[in-house]
Nucleic acid binder design. Structure first.
Lengths: 171, 171
DNA sequence: TGACTTTTGTTTCATATGAAACTATCCAGG
DNA sequence: CCTGGATAGTTTCATATGAAACAAAAGTCA
């Protein structure tokens, strides 16, 4: 018989596992709350300006920088290049974004907002600020201020965890 | 001319919008950090047990409750019923989950772990706890403890925001 | 009983995602 | 020059998602 002796009596791991409460699991709660917030924000941006979140992010970073290559946008907006490419194509199609060749590099592109795009930008950024403020109103000022550094540390730490054992699961 | 007089001189909204820094926008940072964490956790669950996050969540709540209908799983795991249905089908196909008819309601189903499923559960829950602990190690104990209540409040608040003006954007 | 409405769960369909393939350009070494 | 990489962006493909349509079984009320 290969069965463990614990087949009849539930062993410690079993007993411990059965006590696991998903609603007390912090990564789960983080995911639920964040996705809900993202969903709400996405709906608002879409209702007001027809923008998806990737499109909104692209507009935000280009509105700030003036001109940016798709690769830089990907860096600054924490998006992969595929998402940037698609969001940019959609914004160009709607006349909000201009995509020019980079005179110094035949592969590169120069992204910048059109006049119309700046108009949208001028509206969507205050909306974002308003939404952020509404969200902040759900926390005490202290909690809200604590959240930023916590997120920074979590992000830095998860990056370390990713690098730490990439080979461990690959074999 | 319908153009605003601000066409030549950038108005206040424009100037303010141009100062917007995505990396200082908390909802964005929340999303980036959370998605990165979810991605890492998903990879670990998948490497170790071939489970996706929806599958993992279904196993977690059923492992805790013993027997649960798909609807209840959806409630307890904060998933929509479609995701539960698909995750359950996949788990049944792999022999980890049993899906019986509910004798008291012809529409309902009774989900419970098979022996094999309990074996997986007995392994994946400690893995989750370990990962959570590794994540917690990136914060001070105080920060980690603060995060739970913050997430609860954010979730409650975003739900209030959703209900508050659902008609505002629908018109 | 026999329409209705509601509830439960599955399936369909249209969209969103990202890994990998691909195209075009640039650079480095011979 | 040319040839073999590297790099920038786009496209393809396979999968994941959720809204809406669906099917089946309860409940409801005359």
């Amino acid at each position: 018989m290969k069965q463990k002796s614990s087949a009849a009596k539930p062993d410690l791991a079993e007993a411990e596992a059965e006590l696991f409460l998903l609603e007390a699991f912090l990564p789960y709660r983080l995911s639920v709350a964040t996705n809900r917030i993202s969903r709400l924000f996405a709906r608002r941006y879409c209702d007001a300006y027809g923008l998806s979140i990737p499109e909104w992010r692209v507009m935000a970073v280009i509105g700030r920088a003036g001109t940016l290559s798709p690769g830089r946008v990907a860096e600054w907006a924490a998006m992969d290049k595929v998402k940037v490419s698609r969001a940019a194509a959609s914004l160009v199609a709607r006349g909000l974004l201009r995509q020019n060749a980079d005179p110094e590099d035949g592969r590169g592109r120069k992204l910048s907002l059109t006049r119309k795009g700046r108009g949208i930008h001028r509206g969507v950024i205050p909306l974002a600020r308003t939404l952020e403020a509404q969200l902040a109103a759900g926390l005490s000022p202290g909690e809200w201020q604590a959240l930023g550094p916590i997120l920074d540390k979590l992000l830095a730490h998860v990056q370390a965890m990713e690098e730490g054992s990439p080979g461990a699961g690959i074999d």
